[in-house]
């Protein structure tokens, strides 16, 4: 099992922490291996933020994600910039209020969640990243729920632990419900515009 994934959004959405939690879950709590890399440089100041993970049950040799199996896009810019590199038939998880899709997503399995709205319901917009992590966990099933919960617990300060665990649960449940609704593998959960509509 070797999976490449990318999580991208804009600065302040906590995409690095989200990737960190997933990497930690994979390598520490799941006993596998994970390598996380980030984009630095001028383009990473302010605007776009992105992190990539290579997760495997074998030691990771090549450090970078070349053609991700999974893209988690939290902003429109992140979607536009990275959707093209996703593996044919790969998965796309989006913040559905922030990412308008186009035909570039039509060969992917797309799952949407209003992560920011859910986070706001919890009282802190900032936990949208952990909502997304929960959603990721439910949809992709790359990692066990226990491992990711343990990683969330580790990665956030004690006083925000409960809030973040709630965020995880909400995201996870949203994913479970979405899958139960039958928006499983064949159909996309978010309407992807066809060529003619764009």
């Amino acid at each position: 099992m070797l999976k490449e994934l990318r999580i991208a959004g804009f600065g302040g959405q906590g995409v690095i922490l989200a990737a960190h939690i997933i990497g930690r879950a994979a390598s520490i709590h799941e006993g596998g291996y994970a390598t996380m890399t980030q984009n630095y440089g001028p383009e990473a100041r302010g605007g776009a933020a992105s992190a990539a993970l290579v997760v495997s049950d074998q030691p990771v040799l090549y450090p970078y994600a070349v053609s991700p199996d999974i893209l988690v896009a939290l902003s429109q810019e992140a979607y536009s910039r990275f959707v093209g590199e996703v593996k044919e038939g790969g998965m796309l998880l989006v913040e559905e209020d922030l990412v308008p899709l186009d035909q570039k997503a039509q060969h992917l399995k797309v799952y949407g969640i209003p992560a920011t709205r859910i986070a706001e319901e919890l009282g802190k917009k900032m936990v949208l990243n952990v909502v997304m992590v929960g959603f990721f966990c439910a949809i992709t099933r790359v990692l066990s729920r226990e491992a990711v919960v343990a990683a969330v617990t580790d990665a956030v300060p004690e006083r925000f632990r409960q809030l973040n665990l709630s965020a995880f649960d909400r995201g996870f449940q949203y994913g479970v419900d979405l899958l139960a609704k039958g928006a499983v593998t064949e159909e996309n959960s978010v309407a992807v515009p066809q060529e003619s509509e764009v």
């Binding site: 990497g23 390598s27 291996y33 994970a34 890399t37 450090p63």
Partner: peptide
């Protein structure tokens, strides 16, 4: 840079 900025266990 790669080793320095790469996060692993």
């Amino acid at each position: 840079e790669c080793v320095g900025h790469m996060t692993e266990k």
